[in-house]
Design a protein around this nucleic acid. Sequence first.
DNA 1: CGTGACTTTGAGCCATTTCAACACGCGTGG
DNA 2: CCACGCGTGTTGAAATGGCTCAAAGTCACG
Lengths: 203, 203
Amino acid sequence: MRRRKSVRPGETLVWQGERSPLVGVVVDGVLKLTVSNADGDEQIIGLVHRGDFLGRPFGGPTAYGVSAVGDANVCLFPRNRFDQLASERAQVGHRLLEATLEELERSRRWLRMLGHKTAGQKLAAFLVDFQRHAADARGDTTRIALPFTRQHIADILGLTFETVSREFSELRRKLIIDLPDSRVVVVRNRDALLRASGDLPLH
Amino acid sequence: MRRRKSVRPGETLVWQGERSPLVGVVVDGVLKLTVSNADGDEQIIGLVHRGDFLGRPFGGPTAYGVSAVGDANVCLFPRNRFDQLASERAQVGHRLLEATLEELERSRRWLRMLGHKTAGQKLAAFLVDFQRHAADARGDTTRIALPFTRQHIADILGLTFETVSREFSELRRKLIIDLPDSRVVVVRNRDALLRASGDLPLH
DNA sequence: CGTGACTTTGAGCCATTTCAACACGCGTGG
DNA sequence: CCACGCGTGTTGAAATGGCTCAAAGTCACG
């Protein structure tokens, strides 16, 4: 009834326009929700992290594709079984609703990011947001391992990969982050990063 | 138990950061969800149209404010009563879930808009999207009455009001729309508008 | 008819894109 | 082992789309 599946980097689970045949939960890794533009380049409109729901219950065809970024593991349910379960058990439905509301919040935060922020602010905001989901195996939150290429990040933030690269360098130049490797970010000054993101540090 | 309320243009129902005390449905008009930036200018991160749910059930404090654009009517429920109802009656919960999923889709379409599009494409996409909700009293869908000022639209699209104005003029110059009045748009060539939005016309 | 809110249009400027060159690591095959 | 290509990342210089600043037009309302 439920089925584990490991997804290789770049592998696609659901194609854009397909009536989603599955529902699931991300066990490990990150998946991306993408929309392909008429002229070939793709926009990433959502990320799905460990513990997040995947796929649209009850819904019509999905307007986006789902594919893995880096290695990922998912746990899949057949759609019809799941729909049934969700409408019978109020608790399951309730949990699903909360997850969806959470997702909506996240997507609205994202909207805000794309709205008025400069390239530097977008990248900083992205790093801050990703830190939440990226608790290292050893619980080290200052060291973030990005499963993304510069191009991925550019697709997420609506920038070009050159600009993303430049802004990474800029953050390093300001001693806010360290870049031991292009896929690893060490946050040296969290407050400065928050400030650079255009949101005031709360505390 | 349920309470009708008419909202005047610009009137605020919920302030950013407030723990949302209410849940409701929009009876008529359009409300906006806004986030105010540190430096004063506001970003609109969502629009709520007739028939849409309003407010976050179960949730914590809302991260945005809700206020009317133009005149609006809403139907409000006390939060705790509603939460109770939603967890008891599976049907209510189900309906709510669907509405939320719909909302999530819409917000993702929006994300795409803010992502890679040029100013002209954004405005065209906005008009196409708004047409759906803006069926005139007489069912005339080519004539759109906008409850928005140029500044509102700019806040929605992440542009300046000058740019929005220029792009309106540009669409008129191309004979794609007509502007009998700054708040009224007549779509003269829907396919051209769709093409201008960066999405291919489907059929 | 004067005032204020909204809109249009122009001109110069600046952030980001575009185009281009080069560096690095990695696998493959000579 | 080295040469080569390929994917990725960095950095520079030039082009440009949208912003900023500024002026003037329209309309509703007192």
